[in-house]
Structures are given as C-alpha cells and as structure tokens.
Design a protein around this nucleic acid. Structure first.
Lengths: 159, 159
DNA sequence: AACCGTGATGTTATAACATATCAATACGTG
DNA sequence: CACGTATTGATATGTTATAACATCACGGTT
C-alpha cells in the first residue's frame, strides 16, 4: 500500500493518468463522464488537497461551466458515489481519489496547516472497531478514518 | 473496553452518574460548569444519540436558557474541548462522552436509521494508520474514526 | 419524423450548520 | 471594593448543503 500525497512527483502525468483511469471506469460502468464531472475531478486532481464545494464552484463559474451550488454538488455526488473522489468529513471538503485502481477503505492524513491530503488504506473493519461492532450487533456499512496533524513539509516550517 | 450505546440500561442512573462525574472533572480542573453547559450535557446524555446544535438550541430556547446559536456552540465547544462530549463529523452533530472515566481515542458506531451512537475505543494510531503516518513523516494530532451502519435494533426492523 | 422515458443541467430559493464582533454581566482574588 | 478574566447576551454574517421545479439532450420505439 502506497501512501500518496506528500511526496513530490510528476504531477501532470499523475493527473492525466487518473483522468484516463476515471474515463475507463465510467466507460466500463456505462456512466456518463460529462464535462462538468470531468472538470470537477480535474480541479480536485490538480492539487492533492481538500477543496470546499464552493471553492470548486468558483473555478467552474469562472469557466462558464455552472454558477449555482447544485451544479458542483451534483458533480461531487457523482464522483463520490462512484469512488472517483472522497469526502473529507472533518473539513466538509472533497478530494480526488488517489487509489482508483483498486477497492479500498480510504483513510486520510490531513495537514491542518496546508490542507494537503494523503490517502492511505486501513484494515480498520478487521481490527478493534470490527470487534466492537460485532459484539454490539452493529452492521458496518461505511467507515470514516481521518487523522489530522502536520505533514512533513509543515512540521519543519513550525506552524 | 465496553461499547456503550445499544444495550438497554438504567438510564436515569446513567445520566446522573455522568453528570456527577462531569461535575467532579470540572471541579478538579477549576472549570466553570455553568447552567447552560450542564443543561447541554444533560440534553445530550438524555439520549445516546447524536444531536445537531440547532436541535439542542431548540430545547434550551424552550427553557429560556438562551436562544441564539452562539449560546449552544459555546457550550458545545466547552464540552468537546474538555472531553465531556464529542463531535460526530459525519453528521455535523454532537453526543455526550460515554467514557468520562478515562482518556481515550473515541471511535463511533452510528446508526444511519435512528442516529443512535455507540462509543468505543480504538488503537488506530498504533495500527496501519500509524505506520502510514510514520512512513510519510506525518505527525498525527487527532484521529476521527466513525462507522456508519445499522444498529441491532434497526437491523431487524429492515429499514 | 413524432413520441416518450431517463438522466443530466439550469435556476431560484432556502435549509442547516457555524462564527465574528462587541457590549454587558458575573466571579474569584488581592 | 477594584481588578482582571471568564461567561453571557445580542446582532449580524459566513459557510455548507439541499429542495423544488423547469428544461435540455439523448436513445429507443412506433
């Protein structure tokens, strides 16, 4: 499992790879990867950061792709529903999925200073939470794991 | 570790125990457990459920304890800051702490039907997330673990 | 081609959640 | 009682999200 996010990398390739993979996924599942949806994912991919819906809307709006909240929320719903993006509950914000190539239970490391988001994986449902749920008779459908703190870049910079 | 929440129990005693413990904690730390703060905790304790700030405010307001959002948000900030209550990120809601007697990293089982919340514990920072953080050079300050699903009562009722 | 169903978009309004600011009041301590 | 600090009161505003309804675009059917 690779934890993507804080390392530097060829970001243009990273974006176009992800966009290509998303295109394939939509084609396979007969989903419509419309201009707005594609553009929203692109905007999210452009930074490994969490963005608020209204931040995204601002960009869309400046490009004539839609100017009202429902436009961006519908696109985000689509992306999240189909696993192309994730919602960061702790920030009420959204980020592109960094692991499009396989099923996963995402876990996030979120820098409180620069809002950079790294996505990793967790076997949480098999761990103590899973045990607790089982013994309580609770059926887990979805798990949110988010860690807030300082990313390597901001740790040095002494926030 | 006991997972409190879905079992039936002597709830009056449960409330007064928690309230008493909260009183002690505030006394020890020289915190002012004012009427609004106490009442908000009481309201949260009354149900092992997540409540929105405005739900709580409605109750307060009907009792003449304050009618504007800052009243309830200040009380909630106080309770959360001192560990007497927790914020449920996935619901933008709040719940009383069920483990006042010891330090813990809370994890929640949240029923999507009835909003009941069970609080348990997790060693998440020592698990895969901790490893991922360490290898990424990330400093974890706070962890959110929330599982959504169906509680035992609602599983049978077939939502 | 005309029709119809379905999914996506456009648009307006509003719901729900949260905070900034500043004035007024209470509280413990010297 | 005077002082500083913590809390409360009050008004306004900021931020995030959805309801509701109209319209458009496309594919299949007659």
């Amino acid at each position: 499992m690779k934890t993507i996010g804080f390392d530097s990398h060829n970001h243009d390739a990273c974006i176009s790879d992800a966009l290509g993979m998303a295109t394939d996924i939509c084609a396979q599942q007969k989903l419509q990867f419309t201009p707005v949806r594609r553009r929203v994912l692109e905007i999210l991919l452009h930074e490994h950061r969490a963005m608020g819906a209204y931040d995204i809307l601002e960009v869309l709006s400046s490009e004539g792709l839609g100017s009202q909240p429902p436009v961006v929320y519908r696109a985000l719903d689509f992306l999240v529903k189909h696993g192309l993006a994730h919602r960061i509950e702790g920030l009420n914000a959204y980020t592109a999925c960094a692991h499009l190539d396989h099923e996963h239970v995402p876990a996030f490391l979120i820098c409180r200073t620069c809002k950079a988001v790294a996505e990793t994986d967790t076997g949480i449902a098999q761990g103590r939470l899973g045990q607790a749920a089982a013994s309580a008779g609770f059926t887990i459908e979805k798990v949110v794991v988010e860690a807030e703190g300082l990313c390597p870049n901001c740790t040095g910079a002494a926030a």
